[in-house]
Amino acid sequence: MDMMKKGLILMIYTVIAGFVLAGIYVMTKPSIAKADLSEKEKAMRIVLTDWKTGEKLVSDEEISKALSEGGPEKVVEMSWHGVNGKVFLPVYKFHTKLGEAYVMVGAAPGFGGDVKVMASFINGSSGIYLNAIKVLDASQETPGLGAKILQEAPQKRFWGIPPSGLKKGVVVDKDAHGRKDKGVVKTSDIMTGATITPRAVANSINIMYEYLTQKLGGEK
């Protein structure tokens, strides 16, 4: 009888906690969705800026419109040279003066979990090149080390990778092993002590490029 009573009391507390949390969840759900969307919109504005001139490639209105029409997110598992990653659909396509721009989100394993990256690829006159990236999530990375990837400077190192670099595969300088082409990104000076996180960014770029060329039939 005593056990029953205690069990009942415990149940009452958990039910009350459940209701309180359900209430807070319902209350915050629209604001959370809005905050997430606005974060995505901000990131998209960054990647849709010409990396050379800093000029906007697509207007803000077009970006908002594309995002609102994008539909629900779908995850596709992808692998590139033994690295397993993900591509988050939909892929957004924009017409710019430099050529067709594809904005997509991909992820590859970092130190503590997936590092999620948004990237814009432009199908220009000489082939597909990487315009810019924005790291969306690196919350599982070590603060002060790998998490530095969330700062602007390390991310800018990945901007403007030419078609030849993408074809060979993007690597960070620590993994370059003598390679000196344009797909090698120097991160050793700004991400000292953290090798795995910038490598995850490079891998997610390769995975997204793989998806783009395989599934969307873009020219490799």
């Binding site: 309180v20 949390l21 807070i24 969840y25 915050t28 604001s31 959370i32 905050a35 606005s38 974060e39």
Partner: peptide, 12 residues
């Protein structure tokens, strides 16, 4: 959990 949800919504 409450603080996590509230911060996610209002102090992103």
């Amino acid at each position: 959990t409450m603080i996590d949800l509230l911060m996610h919504a209002y102090t992103y």
